[in-house]
Design a protein around this nucleic acid. Structure first.
Lengths: 214, 214
DNA sequence: TATCTTTATTGATATAAATCAACTCCTCTG
DNA sequence: CAGAGGAGTTGATTTATATCAATAAAGATA
């Protein structure tokens, strides 16, 4: 069971008073998940307002060749798929836990009734929605606009942890095959943009890489 | 100059009273554009909350080969790129008028100050933001997830006007070359999914087409 | 340390779609 | 009605990336 004190630490609810937190708790329920478990499937009806409390949730679509296209990974204290709940439409993508974790499921109709008039809550919801627009825009900027080479360049420049991942995993994040990624990194090495240092690549010419995707 | 009566017809503002409409008018300004004119460029700083009043505005990105990738076309009474204004980030895409038209530019800081507490306005903003998430999701579903054949199938099933357009234009909408589109339509004809009837294609087996993208 | 297993690299080939080029068919204009 | 120009079609070629297959390197296990 979730305590009021835990709720209080969540930025979404930081402005709620004791009474409101109790109310919120009464319309919510915590559910735990193991790694790999599905939170919801694409096209399912959206049931509750859902917030990740612990663990990492990946949001993904499946293409006709059965490739997973990951749109985003959510970390704790994020609302997930509130769009589908607000609009009463089916989930546009699936969600699965990449680690053990838990979510808070909030009864949306009651939440709307009790909390929508609260300006702070409204503001937090705006923030959450605009954040999601940014994530989706980023998916488009990466996957629709750029080719594989530019995609790698952009991703390794903008994500410090990219080159710390296993090649395999990075390839999946970038929506390309490990072979393609390997070839592109080899090309970047030849061009002197990156360097291999005890089995991990390192950027040594960020400006050059930047030119590739801008 | 825009009149209060015109403002009143806009769904966003339908719940505002006379005094509020006057206030809104005092922090806004109407600007007219000719076909082809740019409303804003990608990476420009977002200045005002912008609403299309007349005409069609296309939102697009340019890929490295100089292809235009149109993310959405906005018709009158829609807010454009409010995410960028809310977040104070540069526009994530460019916007241009596809016809003559006009926009209402609203001073965002004042708008926030005066109108954010209004529940009806907040609700309309939610609606507008979730709408945008849907548009972007659709771009991803079409362009990242599906290949050309499935893309054509989906688009002609879901957009009645698709087959009324010039082939050339449809190809641009679908982000592929006219040659590719022509070949795909020929394939659909051979399969008996569509038919050419005095120089325009017509769907005759929608179920079969649906299978291609689901 | 030797061996097993997973991950990464490399090369060869296949595939989807773009590009280039030629041709056909409308449609409009004078 | 002729013919000019644009739009659509078709074929040949190129390009980017996936796929398949073989090998190499790295890490794990005994």
């Amino acid at each position: 069971m979730l305590s009021i004190n835990e709720l209080k630490c969540i930025i979404f609810f930081e402005h709620l008073d004791e009474r409101e937190l109790k109310l919120l708790l009464s319309i919510s329920r915590k559910r735990t998940f193991s790694q790999g478990e599905i939170l919801f499937y694409e096209k399912e009806k959206a049931q509750h307002l859902t917030m990740v409390l612990e663990g990492v949730v990946k949001i993904y679509k499946i293409d006709p060749k059965n490739n997973e296209i990951v749109l985003h990974r959510f970390r704790p204290k994020s609302l997930v798929a509130e769009m589908a709940v607000f609009e009463g439409v089916p989930y546009p993508a699936s969600a699965a836990f990449e680690s053990d974790g838990s979510v808070l499921e909030i009864d949306f109709d009651k939440f709307r009734e009790y909390f929508f008039a609260n300006a702070d809550v409204a503001c937090a919801l705006f923030k959450s929605l605009t954040q999601k627009i940014k994530y989706l825009d980023n998916v488009i900027a990466l996957n629709v606009v750029l080719d594989s080479t530019a995609r790698v360049a952009k991703y390794i420049c903008e994500n410090d942890d990219a080159l710390k991942m296993k090649n395999n995993q990075l390839a999946q994040y970038l929506h390309m095959t490990p072979e393609t990624l390997s070839r592109i990194l080899k090309k970047f090495t030849k061009l002197g943009f990156v360097e291999k240092e005890d089995s991990a690549y390192k950027i040594i010419n960020e400006e050059a890489l930047t030119i590739l995707f801008e």
